[in-house]
Design a protein around this nucleic acid. Sequence first.
DNA 1: CTGAAAGCGCTTACAG
DNA 2: CTGAAAGCGCTTACAG
Lengths: 323, 323
Amino acid sequence: MANIREIAEAAGVSITTVSRVLNGHPYVKAEKRKKVLDTIERLEYARNVHAVHLSKGFSNMIGVVLPTISLPYFSELIEGIAEEAAKSEVHFALYQTNYQLEKETFALEQLKHRQVDGLIFCSKAMSDEELLNWRDTGPFILCQDSRERLFSTVSIPHHEAFRRGLDFLIEKGHKKIAIGLARKHGVNSHYRLEAYKEALAAIGEPYRDEWVFERSLTIADGQTLFSAWSRMDDKPTAIFVANDQVSAGLYLEARKHQVQIPENLAILSCDNQPISELLGISTIEIKTKEMGRHAFRLLQKGIRGEEAEKKILPYRLIERSTV
Amino acid sequence: MANIREIAEAAGVSITTVSRVLNGHPYVKAEKRKKVLDTIERLEYARNVHAVHLSKGFSNMIGVVLPTISLPYFSELIEGIAEEAAKSEVHFALYQTNYQLEKETFALEQLKHRQVDGLIFCSKAMSDEELLNWRDTGPFILCQDSRERLFSTVSIPHHEAFRRGLDFLIEKGHKKIAIGLARKHGVNSHYRLEAYKEALAAIGEPYRDEWVFERSLTIADGQTLFSAWSRMDDKPTAIFVANDQVSAGLYLEARKHQVQIPENLAILSCDNQPISELLGISTIEIKTKEMGRHAFRLLQKGIRGEEAEKKILPYRLIERSTV
DNA sequence: CTGAAAGCGCTTACAG
DNA sequence: CTGAAAGCGCTTACAG
């Protein structure tokens, strides 16, 4: 593989001049520019990016940290990031964590080693406090609703949105409401639980631990949730779950067992993925792809050294036929 | 940020020695090693990967080329690749192409620039002939069943597997069989169409263009497919589609319109994603994650300069209730 | 408009 | 076991 020196020699100019045409700088005589370009073409020269990165001090590559790629919510988020990244010609590496702390630490370490210019946390297990220790390592942003003002974040107002869903169920006459959370200790789950307790208090219902389901993420989790529900003596009349995969599993399993929806059981979820539309499941829409786009832009700002910023995205309740 | 020279000075050794402990080389006196390690810790030193890459000539990063991330088939494939990559401590960048040729070319260009050490094509629009021109650019492998022997590939035997599905429908008494292909000109689609024509010939049925549906990839495509089917005067009694998203859309839409499955319409698909199990859709299982793992290993071999290899994975017909 | 030279931060023969 | 020095392939003040 030819390098810049060989191109310079072959074209009869200096290395500096080659570098200038490579970077589209002005102040190169048209004739020389052409000669360099021709030589590059003829020798099939391709710039070695590692040398460029070392010289420039950055790599135009960011890291995306997420628990798993195979949940529609996350793949949609990535699509948004990818679209925006492509426009700016930046690459991204994926760090799949399964919510393991050491995997998240690994990603931060990569940031420290300058493997990436910045990090987008789609969701994380690490506490805000701990993440704060990494602040000087390099720029990163969260796709979560964090109250820590030093973090740049993009998200919907989780507390408010979840409360909206609960109030909707209450308006429809439900008092016995169960919820399904993605994780026990997640930040979003924390806000959702808060909203849940408030809503119960507002209608004078007691809080019951057994009506809070955890680890509800996948279709299979939705099926499990149905089994749990059907085994209960005192059954909730409505279940509000974290995403459309869970509600799809729950809904289809319920129908399989001749449970009438919404008469015997009302179902509400979040995200508005295609499957919820197909099954007619009521849900709270989140513009996930849009969120990905904003995440990328926010990170770019961080990389440029701008101050932390909180971007709040809208959400919308979509009534279909399961409530 | 400290660099290796500062560490050397602070520890009172040479740069070479620091590099040796960084790379775990033997022949460093324990005492010096400790001193270096302590200094690294104290100064929070992190090696600049760009310098390492430039020096070593590779980056331990591969590129994954795929049309979209948000189809379960592809996200599962990525999970397999990611698992294996993590073990070898290699990173990967995602190149999302939407089957646009220029995006695929872009990925190959990155390979040329040494941005990545190798490329995995999960699916591609580029013809084998054209891709062949890029052979000297660097190592890459395909997750497709290519007859070009110079390419390393990992896949199921598409022709055979699709034929197996068709024969299964025929055994069940179907003669009027339609198929849904992911793309018109894909390699897999090509093999599937071949198998389709053979199967029809075997039972003396004519080939009809209007019974070959294209661009069948998503749940929404499955819904569209149902509309097309229900508008037909002469209806096929069975449809064999490219993946479980399509069959799910088709199946649910059919049920919504009171079409009895499989009495009025039999449905068969490929992949065996969770949704097919949930809905009881008969399908041909592909171990997609396994395929991702093999893909990574095959690429590693290519990077080490080993010869092209074709890895054939097993498939399995899973009978459920839609045929 | 152009080029010689220093610098980015590592690795690795080579000599001891 | 250890270190001085060359080299990886670029970019970018600086001087002209």
